[in-house]
Amino acid sequence: MTEVIDGNAVAQTIRDSLGGAIDTLDDAGVTPGLATVLMSDDPASETYVSMKQRDCEEVGINGIHVELDTHAPAQELYDTIDDLNADPDVNGILVQMPVVDQVDTRRVLRSVAPEKDVDGFHPENVGRMVAGNARFKPCTPHGIQKLLEHSGVETEGAEAVVVGRSDIVGKPMANLLIQKAPLGNATTTVCHSRTKDLAAHTRNADIVIAAAGVPELVDGSMLKEGATVIDVGVNRVDADTEKGYELVGDVEYESAKEVAGKITPVPGGVGPMTRAMLLWNTVKAASEQTGVAVDLD
């Protein structure tokens, strides 16, 4: 029987585990603070920010939300980030992507103070992660590591294939898997849109992480019997439903489930873990900025 990895359950375990650390900070007069910044009229982005703020409330993190007019000059966003960098009550800053066209995304990533960059996207934090001394691991790859750990998947010595090379998931995921560290030590191949024979790579993999943003790119015929399949994709496709669409992953779930030993569903797999690790990073940031030691597993 294929094991369906329940991301909601593992994410709840992570959130529950933060309680002790948040209590320790509270005893020292510290309440972790996470600021979310939205400069977009994308409905999905608005939903994501709302969910992150709700997560903060549930675990005892002070959520601060700043929403900017999408027609405002880019400088307004840069100035907002500067203000949040200087605010001692804000330990973590997340600028929801994508931002509007007039904004330089790379400047946004560079503008967030590295010690408050709980997304892990600032160049300094990327460099620290690559060097094996991460301040903050990017939330989605870190969440995937936690899913593998909680599901008893051994990465050491495993053949892993990461499908996708984005700065947010693919590249950091591959880097974490190859590191000489717990939840690493895998022999890792990165595939992408220019890979000539994707199936030739995925069929040899013990672990397949699909993060290409292409609906149902990987199917059961492309998998090794018993492989662990982590589906990062969330794609909206037309369907005969009340909404007129359905959400599918980068993996064709039904055929993959017939072959895989373990698999994540969409939704309910990786998504909840990304949000949980954002909370984890925020608590870590509060601890490091205030000097109050906490126990984070």
Rank of each mutant, 00 (worst) to 15 (best):
A181W: 10
E46L: 10
A285Q: 02
A181K: 15
I168T: 03
I64G: 02
D16T: 15
H150C: 06
E76L: 12
G233S: 05
D238I: 06
D101P: 00
A239E: 02
D240T: 05
Q179E: 04
V248T: 11
T195C: 08
A181M: 09
V237H: 07
I263Q: 11
T140L: 01
D79F: 13
D117G: 00
S193W: 00
H142D: 13
A11C: 05
A72L: 00
A227M: 09
T140N: 01
A21K: 01
T195P: 13
D79H: 14
I61D: 06
G244Q: 13
A72F: 03
V126M: 01
S151H: 09
Q102E: 15
E115T: 12
N91E: 08
I168V: 15
D55Y: 09
T290G: 09
V234K: 02
V163G: 08
V214N: 03
V208C: 02
V163D: 08
A134P: 14
C56Y: 08
V248A: 10
P88V: 00
V126E: 00
L25R: 10
G244W: 14
Y245T: 11
N125K: 02
G271W: 08
K262E: 11
P123Q: 09
F136S: 00
T80H: 13
Y245P: 14
R107N: 09
L177C: 07
Q179F: 01
R275H: 13
D27C: 07
S287I: 03
L77A: 12
E76W: 07
I168R: 01
A186H: 09
L94P: 06
V59W: 10
V49Y: 10
Q289L: 13
P123W: 06
L109P: 00
G29P: 04
V214H: 05
G220K: 07
P182E: 11
